[in-house]
Every structure is written in structure tokens, then in C-alpha cells.
Amino acid sequence: MLKLRDGIVELYKKVATSLPPDVEEGLKQAFSNEQEETKAKSALGIILENIKMGRDTARPICQDTGVPVFFIKVPAGLSQIDIKNTVLDATRIATEIIPLRPNAVDILTERNSGDNTGIGFPIIYLEETEKSTLSIDLMLKGGGSENAGQIYKLPASDLNAQRDLDGVSKCVLDAVQKAQGRACPPYLLGVGIGASKDQVTRLSKEQLMRKLNDKNESKELAKLESDLLTNINRLGIGAMGFGGNVTALGVKIGVNHRHPASYFVDISMGCWATRRGRLIW
């Protein structure tokens, strides 16, 4: 487990200091899609320079190193409790040596634990896999973008949104319209649809782990993802909310079966600095 611990510390370091290639590529395209001498282009220029500086100097891209969120797939026979404890050890070490900003605050005492561990912190989702390899996905989820997430129950008459994919679209557009530039656009959007509140919030967050070029297996959802991206960009909010052609880099949608009475839509917002990575063990 010591080697695994060091592997997770390395994963933390990679995720905190270098943006995934697909997101960086998306930002470069956004830069070329904005007109010269605009506020949005100027913002994107600084963002791209910052990404390079973070990588070159091994410093976290953003001071908000977020809530660490782990999605772990465990082969049969490996102890999930051991893995969880190893993640906690790695988190303490990573916080000190990278460093990460300590973000775990006790609700009652308002004390920051100082090492990014606490009750339910980091967030760890464990699941058994039939494969023989351990797969650890990590996202460092910034607070500003997390705050811009929304959950909807359809139908929603104020949005003229019925229980269908058109209704889902309206929810996503509403979430972006409400967020404006406050959560660091261009955004990545994760959408989860299903039967219960707890399930869709996790599902929407998992969508943020998908690469931007990952195509939805469902034809209908693939089309919805692409149409939504076009329409979000037509809102004109732009990088940093300065106005511009690119408000989002991608939309990813996941679905579960729903109850006849329920139709929940959850939206997770990822900032331009959506930091994620995978360790295969």
C-alpha cells in the first residue's frame, strides 16, 4: 500500500499542476475562436499562459485546489477500507508537499483541519470492478464552480420545461444563464438525469470525468450534447463572463432509469480549470 500511496500523491501532483490535454486544447480553440482585441481573447491569453506556467514550475494552476473527488474501481479481493485509508494518507502528504490549499472546514467549530481530510473529505466513491486492475480517477473540484451547480425537478413551469429532452435542455441553459461569469467560464458541463436527488448529483459529476472528445453511446444524447453546446455558446457570456463566442467547451450527459413520478436533472459546472486524471494500478 505504500507504493500505492506514493502513486496517489503523484496523481494529486499531476492533476493540480497540469491541465488535461483535452481541456487545454479546448481552451486553445476557444482562443482562436474569439476576435482580436476583445476582453474574452485577452482573458483566454492569460489563462493559456497560466496553464503553461503551472506546468513548467510544478505549481497548482489555481489556488483553489478544491475538494478532491475520487471515483475508484476496485478489483475483487482488495480491501476497500485499506484503499480509503491509503487515499487519506496520500491526501495529507500531497497537501504538504505540492502543496495543496487546506480546504476542509469543520461545520461546527469553523476550524480548518489543515490537511484536507475531515468528515466525508475527500469525497471517495468506491465500486467493485470485474477487471484485475485498480483504477483511480481524481478530480480537484473548485468551490466556485461547485457553487454554480443546480438541481431541477421536471416539469418546471417557470422554464416552460416538460419531462423530455427539450425540458432537460432548458434546465442546462438556465443553470448557465444563472451562473454568468461567476464560476470561471469557459465551462465544462456535466448533466445527470434520473430518479433520485443523490443519484443524479453523483452522475452529473462523473460526466465531468469524460474527455471532451468522448462521444455519448446514445445517438439522441450525443446530439443533445452537441446542440446544447451550440446554444450555450449563443448566450454570449464568454470567457470570464466578459462577453464572447465561447461560454462552454463541452456538455456531457448521463442517464439512469427514473420513477414514473420523478424526473430529476442535475447540473455540475466545471470551471475552465477542470482538473482531472487517472491512475491505473
Binding site: 489563462i47 497560466n50 506556467m53 503551472g54 466556485g144
Partner: peptide, 26 residues
Amino acid sequence: IGGAAVYLAERIKKILGVWKLDEFGA
């Protein structure tokens, strides 16, 4: 620019002081 934290940190030349560090955290 939100998220441009390394770029902006380069423009901070010096820490001159801090208040409420122990109580509130960094």
C-alpha cells in the same frame, strides 16, 4: 482572471504581513 493563480502570484512581490492567520486559517 479567475484561475490564473500562478500568473497572478508572479505579480505579488512580497508578503508584508498577515492578520487572523491562526484563527481563520491561511
